[in-house]
Computed example of a mutant assay.
Amino acid sequence: MKVPTVYILTNQTNSVLYIGVTSNLVQRVYQHKNNLVEGFTKKYKVHKLVYFEQFEDMYAAIAREKALKKWNRGWKDRLINEMNPNWRDLWGEII
Results as ranks from 00 to 15, higher is better:
2 K>A: 01
2 K>P: 06
4 P>H: 00
4 P>L: 03
4 P>S: 11
4 P>M: 05
5 T>D: 05
5 T>I: 11
7 Y>K: 14
11 N>W: 07
11 N>P: 05
14 N>K: 13
15 S>I: 08
15 S>F: 01
15 S>W: 07
16 V>E: 12
17 L>P: 03
19 I>G: 07
19 I>S: 07
19 I>V: 15
20 G>L: 12
21 V>A: 15
21 V>E: 14
22 T>E: 02
23 S>K: 14
23 S>F: 08
25 L>K: 01
25 L>A: 00
26 V>M: 10
27 Q>G: 13
30 Y>E: 11
30 Y>H: 13
31 Q>S: 13
31 Q>M: 14
31 Q>V: 04
31 Q>F: 13
32 H>Q: 12
32 H>S: 09
32 H>G: 10
32 H>K: 12
34 N>P: 00
35 N>Y: 11
36 L>C: 01
36 L>P: 00
37 V>R: 11
38 E>Q: 14
38 E>F: 14
42 K>M: 12
43 K>L: 08
43 K>A: 09
45 K>N: 13
45 K>T: 07
46 V>A: 06
47 H>W: 10
47 H>Y: 12
49 L>M: 04
52 F>H: 14
53 E>S: 08
53 E>L: 07
54 Q>P: 02
54 Q>I: 07
56 E>D: 03
58 M>C: 05
58 M>G: 08
58 M>R: 15
59 Y>T: 15
60 A>T: 15
60 A>H: 07
60 A>D: 10
61 A>M: 05
62 I>V: 15
63 A>E: 15
63 A>W: 02
64 R>S: 09
64 R>G: 03
65 E>K: 13
65 E>A: 11
67 A>S: 08
68 L>N: 01
69 K>W: 06
70 K>Q: 08
73 R>M: 01
73 R>L: 06
74 G>H: 05
74 G>W: 02
75 W>P: 00
75 W>Y: 02
75 W>L: 12
78 R>Y: 06
79 L>H: 03
79 L>D: 03
80 I>S: 02
80 I>H: 04
83 M>D: 03
84 N>P: 00
84 N>A: 08
85 P>S: 08
85 P>F: 06
86 N>T: 10
86 N>C: 07
87 W>K: 01
87 W>G: 01
87 W>T: 02
88 R>Q: 05
88 R>T: 07
88 R>V: 08
89 D>A: 05
89 D>P: 04
89 D>M: 01
91 W>V: 02
93 E>H: 06
94 I>L: 02
95 I>A: 13
